[in-house]
């Protein structure tokens, strides 16, 4: 039983990887989009401030965190599409491990996000951005980003199962923009009106971005924030992971 849990999860992961191979353009667009945002904000918006090394130092961790947050859309879309297809009925009428569908989704999404981080960091490097911290700090930052993405993943799975309709995907695709931008990804809260600054500071994504800045030795970082970048995603997971798993088991009601 437990060995089947592993093989079933691997089979479902392979299914997602096969989808990538079938739809390389889709994967590519997903990877290029954050790069486009980085260039836009770095040169168009940041241009107004003069693209100093300092702003890139500030912007890159924010963009990395934003990319992780936007990953929620991809998860939501993929799970919604799966649930609305007949194939989920076949999976559920088969003697496979119940959660394998979700595990496969998680692994594939995490792989894609790791790839996304690598591409974005590579492009930033080419633009002249450098991490100033230690190699350990660098790995820690990547770990925090992926942990945040993991929390987003389970929010996405849960939302997909609660609503399960393509209409919701569109709504969420629009909503992630204000939520993503109401963070310190592009600007420090100090430059904002007081109430807005408070909202921005509470955004879980801001904590991750701040912690990553610290570990990269970039301006805008604060040493105390690493714990917040662990606690927030952990809290989100504590809520959404059990909800999503329970919901998945209840699909048969």
């Amino acid at each position: 039983m437990s060995t089947y849990a592993l093989t079933d999860s691997w089979t479902m992961t392979r299914r997602e990887l096969a989808h990538w191979a079938r739809q390389p353009v889709q994967l590519l667009v997903g990877l290029v989009f954050p790069v486009m945002l980085l260039l836009m904000f770095g040169y168009l918006v940041g241009g107004g401030r003069g693209v100093t090394g300092d702003y890139l130092d500030y912007l890159v961790p924010g963009m990395l965190a934003l990319t992780m947050a936007f990953g929620l859309e991809g998860t939501l879309l993929a799970v919604t599409q799966d649930l609305n297809k007949g194939v989920i009925d076949r999976f559920r009428s088969m003697p496979m491990t119940n959660g394998a569908v979700l595990v496969g989704r998680s692994i594939a999404d995490m792989l894609q996000s790791a790839l996304g981080l690598a591409v974005l960091i590579g492009v930033a490097y080419a633009l002249g951005w450098r991490a100033h911290g230690s190699p350990g700090g660098f790995l820690g930052a990547v770990g925090l980003l992926l942990f945040f993405r993991f929390a987003m993943l389970w929010i996405g799975i849960h939302l997909a199962m609660v609503a399960g309709k393509p209409e919701l995907v569109t709504a969420v695709q629009i909503l992630v923009w204000p939520v993503g931008f109401l963070s310190n990804a592009f600007a420090t809260p100090e430059t904002m009106p007081g109430w807005l600054g408070t909202v921005v500071e509470w955004n879980p994504m801001s904590h991750t971005a701040t912690a990553v800045r610290d570990l990269f030795g970039a301006p805008g970082g604060a040493p105390g924030h690493t714990w917040a970048a662990i606690v927030w995603p952990l809290a989100l997971l504590a809520v959404f992971f059990p909800l999503a798993v329970r919901r998945f088991g209840r699909l048969s009601k």
């Binding site: 007949g86 989920i88 009925d89 009428s93 088969m94 003697p95 496979m96």
Partner: peptide, 30 residues
Amino acid sequence: RFRIGLLGQHAALDEELGGRQNLEMFGRLY
């Protein structure tokens, strides 16, 4: 579930994959 097969009203297949890929995947899941 080990003893049944189901042909539902709507195709229960992975539409992105080929026929062989589908059958191999389901076979592994059995």
